[in-house]
Amino acid sequence: MTATFAILKRELLTYFVSPLAYVFLGVFLFLAGVFFYLGIALTGEASLRVMMGNVSISLMFVLPMLTMRHFAEEQKTGTFEMLMTSPVSPVAILVGKWLASLTLCLLMLLGTGLFVAILAYYGEPDWGVIATSYLGLFLTCGVFCAGGLFASSLTDDQVAAGMGGIVLLMPLWLVGSASSLVGEEWQARLDHLALLPHLRSFTKGVIDTADLSYFALLTFGFLFLTFRTLESRRWR
C-alpha cells in the first residue's frame, strides 16, 4: 500500500514538474472544448452527450501518449531495475502507475467542469445524466490507461509504446462500426466488445451492471496482461 502510494506520488510529481502534464491538459481541454462548443452550437441542447462520445475517442489517442513513458522509460533508464529490486510486488508498481495516470485523467475531466458550469448558467442540464456521463468517461479513462500501460510494458521505446497503445485500443472503437464488413448479425455480437455502445448507456443517464462489468473486466484484463508482461520480461 505504501509502495503503491509512493509510486503514485512519484509519478504525479514527475508529471507535474515537467511541462508534459500541462501540455496534455491543454491539448485535451482544447479538443474537449471544440467538441463541447460544436455540440451545443449544432444541436442547441443543454447536454454533454455529443461531447462525451467524441471525447472518448480523442482520449483513445491522447491517453496512450500519457502512459507511454510509464514502463518504456523506466526500462530504458534502468529505474525499472530499482523498482523491481525493491521490496515491492509488481502489482503495487502497476497499480500505482495506473492510479497516477487515472488521477491525471481526473484532473482533465475536472477541467471540463467549466462546460457543465456553462450549461448550468445558460440552460437546465439534466444533472443525473451529467453525473453518469462523467462516470462513464472516467471508466473509459481507466480502460485506456490500463491499455496504454500494457503497450508501454511491451517495449522500451516510448514512441513505439504510444503508437502501440493507440493500435491496441483502436479495435475497441472500430469493432463498433464494422456492420458493413461483417453484417448485422455479427455486428450485434461485436457490439459487446466495442466500447461506445457500453459508454452510450452512461451518456444517456443509465448505469447498467453489464456495462460496469465491461469496463472493470477490460481494465483488469489489461492490467493483468501488463503484470504478466512485466513478469515475463524477467525470464524471456
Partner: peptide, 14 residues
C-alpha cells in the same frame, strides 16, 4: 539488499 545497478537508476526530472 541494497543494489546499485550499472547505470544509477535515476528519474531525471526529480
Amino acid at each position: 539488499v541494497g543494489y546499485l545497478p550499472e547505470t544509477p537508476p535515476l528519474y531525471r526530472e526529480l
